[in-house]
Computed example of a mutant assay.
Amino acid sequence: EKCIPSVLQSDYPRDKMEIILVDNGSTDGSADFARSLLQKEQINFKIIENNENKGWSPANNQGARVATGEILLFLSNDMEVDKNWIKEIVKIFSLDPKAGVVQCNSISMWDRKTLDSGMNYLDRFG
């Protein structure tokens, strides 16, 4: 309920956005909620509904296979993004055409002053 609205509040042009939701077998009505919201917003979107949870990486790969954009941004359903998020990522790729991956800082949902790595990180070797 917070992820997609935060993306929609982005200052990035909507005509350049494509939202792909891969629903991993949820039973809480997430796909229907997203479909209803995105249809109202009149934005280019696709929803892939899996009958079971295939895992985070396979779901990302499913979305990537149907994506038409040049830059793919992956989010989990529990994330919210800053309105400048997309523009900043696009800017990094335009400044360094050799860049293949960009990782943003994550801020804790419970303490907005604390960085939250989710116990994961990328070093210079990936």
Rank of each mutant, 00 (worst) to 15 (best):
I4K: 11
G25K: 12
E80C: 06
I19W: 06
W85Y: 14
I20Q: 06
E52C: 01
S108Q: 06
I43Y: 08
G118S: 08
C3Y: 06
N44Q: 08
Q9V: 01
S117E: 02
S94L: 09
D96M: 11
R112I: 07
N61T: 14
T68E: 13
S94F: 06
R112P: 01
C3P: 04
D123S: 09
F125H: 13
G118K: 09
Y12S: 02
K91H: 14
D78H: 10
D28A: 02
S30Y: 13
K83S: 13
E80M: 13
I48E: 10
N24Q: 14
N84C: 09
I48T: 10
G55R: 12
V66M: 03
Q39I: 00
D116L: 09
D23E: 12
T68F: 13
Q9L: 11
V102L: 09
P5G: 08
N24H: 04
E80G: 05
K46H: 14
F93P: 04
K91W: 15
I43Q: 06
K40E: 00
D28K: 09
D11W: 04
Y12H: 00
I19D: 00
N61Q: 15
F93W: 05
G29F: 01
G63F: 00
I20K: 02
D78C: 09
Q42A: 09
K98I: 08
L21H: 03
W85G: 12
E49S: 15
S10F: 12
N53S: 15
E70F: 10
K98Y: 13
P5V: 05
D32M: 02
D111A: 13
T68W: 07
I89S: 07
G29T: 03
N77L: 07
D123F: 07
V66S: 09
F74H: 01
S57C: 12
N44P: 02
I47G: 07
Q9P: 00
L122T: 03
R65W: 07
G126Q: 03
G126N: 05
L8H: 01
G29I: 04
M79V: 04
N50C: 14
D11V: 10
G126D: 07
R124V: 08
D96W: 11
R14W: 02
G55I: 07
D32Y: 03
K2D: 10
W85N: 14
N84P: 03
N44W: 00
C104G: 14
P5C: 11
K2R: 15
D116I: 02
D32K: 10
A34C: 15
A31L: 11
P58D: 07
A99R: 15
N84K: 15
A31V: 00
A34R: 07
I19G: 00
W110N: 14
R65P: 04
V22E: 06
S76Q: 15
A31E: 03
E49H: 10
E52Q: 08
M119K: 14
V7M: 10
D96P: 00
F45M: 07
D15F: 08
S106V: 10
